[in-house]
Design a protein around this nucleic acid. Structure first.
Lengths: 167, 167
DNA sequence: TCACATTCCGCATAATCATGCGAAAAATAA
DNA sequence: TTATTTTTCGCATGATTATGCGGAATGTGA
């Protein structure tokens, strides 16, 4: 029969492959389609560089410089926020009076605090009026810090740690 | 004399060339280094593809898809708005009833308000249901506006200023 | 079912881009 | 100035990516 029920027809495979591709790209720093092929293979998807090239175009993947200056494949912003928890440096040195740690995603820094301490920490950050920091938003135990896009994470981190005396 | 005063030594040329390059890239949609070479030539700068490749890396230029799906060279956002007014346009026209100013970073707009006015301002922004704005988060004196990534800053700014009657 | 259009994708190859090397210019030091 | 180091950049070429073509799978319509 033409309409067979084998699950792995080509269309299905394509979608799955592209999904895996997104995950790979958002979780590791890959520089060539060759490498991507290998990663895909590890994940059980065999394909050629040609196919990959076409996939990347469809997914609107771009090759841009990371912090080190190396060119790596990246998802457009829309999808980039998935990386929040697994790719960014967590700073555990922050450790007193409320603030617990800082993580970065894009040009945002997220400061986790003890419950109820967020607004106080945010206040400390705000009052220093650093040009690196456009503003903060405090919830209960989380402060979202919106950084100037030209600011380096290291500098922002410095600013935050020095702004919060308890840290 | 070695330290001559001829203006067109190589270093000067390089800086000028890269500056022109930025202008070209930000003003037209170019897909290959070949084309860039021609544009540079028109502007009076002769160079090779090799040099161009190196320039592009230094300028952190990326090749990404435009609206048509074509891959074109683009400046990183950071530099793309630099000319407008240094690093991020601050809008001081906003000036009444709470909202103070708007700054952009990435696809976020940050509206600073008088203390306690953030949620009201956010409400005003929300209720217009602009497709350019995905959502808002209000703190005490800061509203974070998450913009659609395809929206231009100018449009978002327009939307925000018109949404907040007090502005 | 059969005819026809569409999608997917590998192959081979073209197109595009990056880079090692050496020469020359420029900067820096002595 | 002269010596020494650093920067710039073209050339040739290697590395990487895109794509025309054709075949197979799938979808569509009658």
């Amino acid at each position: 029969m033409q309409r067979n029920n084998q699950k792995h027809n080509r269309t299905v495979k394509k979608n799955a492959r592209q999904e895996v591709l997104r995950m790979i790209i958002s979780s590791q720093e890959v520089s060539t389609q060759e490498e991507l092929m290998k990663e895909l293979f590890k994940a059980g998807y065999e394909s050629t560089q040609s196919t990959l090239s076409r996939d990347l175009r469809q997914l609107q993947v771009v090759k841009a410089q990371n912090e080190d200056g190396r060119y790596v494949y990246m998802l457009p912003h829309r999808q980039m926020f998935r990386r929040v928890s697994d790719t960014h440096a967590t700073v555990h040195q922050l450790n007193s009076l409320g603030a617990l740690n800082v993580k970065f995603s894009g040009n945002l820094a997220v400061v986790r605090t003890l419950p109820g301490h967020a607004s106080h920490v945010a206040y400390d950050i705000d009052k220093m009026c650093s040009p690196l920091i456009l503003g903060t938003i405090a919830g209960d135990d989380t402060v979202l810090v919106i950084c100037d896009e030209v600011a380096s994470r290291a500098d922002v981190l410095n600013a935050i740690t020095s702004a919060v005396p308890s840290l």
